[in-house]
């Protein structure tokens, strides 16, 4: 009976010492941040918010302008390619196809012809232009999005 009581007291003592140690650890580990930290964080955030709103507006405008310019350039390219490539089409197309795609009928591209695609230099040319325009538009878009944060990031 005495031993059980003694064990209980000991357990209680250990428990209490543990509690003291834990509370002391908590007190000593806790660091209070300097007051300017909050202000600096909020400054950064508010700046970001401001830029984001302006950025969305700027983004829309630049996108419209870019689309217009790309559309205009695309139209000019189509017109030029129609008048310039058309007369030379036969010689240029044949030379390129003969030299580069010698065994075109035996390659994998043959199945495109079977599917109804007419293989021609013109398609490659237009395809390349569209691809370049898409890449250009895509990268312009990314540049615009990236621009805003760089202004307030240190």
């Amino acid at each position: 009976m005495y031993n059980t009581f003694n064990t209980l007291i000991m357990e209680n003592k250990n428990f209490n010492i543990e509690k003291i140690i834990e509370s002391k650890i908590k007190i000593q580990l806790f660091e209070t941040s300097p007051p300017e930290v909050e202000e600096k964080i909020m400054e950064k955030v508010e700046l970001a918010e401001k830029f984001q709103i302006e950025d969305v507006k700027a983004n829309r405008l630049v996108k419209k302008i870019t689309l217009f310019v790309i559309g205009f350039l695309g139209l000019i390219t189509l017109v030029i390619s129609y008048f310039l490539i058309q007369p030379a089409e036969e010689t240029v197309q044949k030379t390129i196809i003969d030299n580069i795609f010698i065994d075109i009928n035996n390659t994998g591209l043959r199945f495109l012809e079977i599917l109804g695609f007419k293989f021609s230099f013109e398609y490659f040319f237009y395809g390349a232009i569209i691809l370049i325009l898409v890449i250009l538009f895509g990268s312009l878009d990314r540049i615009i999005i990236k621009r805003a944060p760089s202004k307030f990031q240190k």
Binding site: F30, E31, S33, V37, E38, I41, E46, E49
Partner: peptide, 20 residues
């Protein structure tokens, strides 16, 4: 939704523990 004041509350609540 862009409420920076709501974020200030978050900063206020967690800044000290995050600082530690």
């Amino acid at each position: 939704e862009g409420d920076t004041e709501a974020f200030r509350e978050i900063v206020n609540t967690y800044k000290d523990k995050a600082y530690s």
